[in-house]
Computed example of a mutant assay.
Amino acid sequence: MSLKIERDTVQQTISNVAQGHSQQHHGHKSIVGATAAAITEAASGNLPGTSGKHPISEVVGTAITGGRQNAGTKGYLAAYIKQLEDHPLRTKMLTAGTLAGTQELIASWLAKDRNKHGNYFTSRVPKMATYGALVSAPLGHFLIWFLQKTFKGRTSLKAKIMQILVSNLLIAPIQNTVYLTAMALIAGARTFHQVRATVRVGFWKVMRVSWITSPICLAFAQKFLPENAWVPFFNLVSFVIGTYINTVTKKKRLAALRKKHFGDGGRTAGGGGSTIGGGRPEDYPPMGPNPPY
């Protein structure tokens, strides 16, 4: 009963705000009114294809997959969520592998980092895709399952804060250590000493990224997303941040290599991003993004 009263109150408030806003801004009446109506429908479960549990995110999902006229049909987002529910690990592996490989390819293109043949599709692209699918996704799947199981049914503010602390102080260090170890191996490290040196140099840099982004992302997921959408959401955030950091890192390494071999002038082969002689950026362990949570 209390839940129904609260929902009715929210719906009435949204309607009142929409009406008041429409009277003051006639030019935006249709947009605000339509949005408020859609949220009201979703909150009551009357918008086809929605449950009413997350009205705002469900309205956004409806808009992404074709709008009101296609609500309830099998759009891209609905199909993906269905695959997550039916085959969670397989779907996460395919998603993480695709994002990791794409991130490396985009970063190489943005940084003008080419291989000796002048291609942006370097050997790191399939290696990163393999890491995402076979290492990052299964690890993230298990750790998120552990986190959700530990705090299942606990919705108080204290429980949410504890969940964020556990994520940052336990889960993030595990993921970042595995991430840096994998990156060292991909970059060519072959001894325990080389791997350990990579982890020691990069650990706190990557942890700082985690401690900035993780609380914000986890708080957003707690508030707006169903649990089965957490890992894909974290993957998407990591993809955006990782692409930026990877691009900046590649540019810095290319500049350092040009300066090392040719001085400040920095001649390059064919006018592109490849250096003449010496090592390439993949010879050095990347200080990349926080991996999928």
Rank of each mutant, 00 (worst) to 15 (best):
P289Q: 04
A78K: 02
V32G: 10
L254S: 13
G188Q: 13
V178Q: 01
G61F: 10
A63V: 14
E282F: 10
G45C: 12
N168D: 07
I5F: 12
A269W: 10
I106P: 09
V231I: 14
V59N: 08
V32R: 01
N70E: 10
L157F: 12
T122E: 04
K260L: 14
H87I: 03
R258C: 08
F233S: 15
K29E: 06
P48A: 07
A18F: 01
S30D: 11
K259W: 11
R90N: 11
H117T: 12
I64H: 06
W211D: 07
D283C: 07
Y284K: 06
R68V: 12
Y293A: 08
R196Q: 15
H26P: 05
L157G: 07
W109R: 10
G242A: 05
V135T: 11
F262W: 08
W145T: 12
G279N: 06
G20V: 00
V209A: 15
P285M: 06
E85C: 10
L180T: 01
T95M: 02
G97W: 05
A182N: 06
S51M: 06
V248F: 07
V135R: 00
P226A: 07
M183Y: 00
K112G: 11
K82A: 07
R7Q: 11
K127L: 15
Q103Y: 00
F234R: 15
L143N: 06
L139W: 00
R208H: 06
P286S: 10
P292W: 04
V248H: 10
I241G: 02
G242R: 02
A159G: 02
Q175M: 05
S210D: 05
A137M: 11
M162A: 05
K149P: 00
V231W: 14
G270Q: 02
V209D: 14
H25N: 15
R196C: 14
P285A: 11
H117W: 04
A197P: 01
Q23A: 05
E104D: 14
I164M: 13
G153A: 04
I39Y: 10
R190L: 02
Q175W: 00
D86G: 03
Q175G: 05
Q23V: 07
M207Q: 08
H54N: 14
G265L: 09
K158M: 13
G273K: 11
K152D: 09
K92G: 13
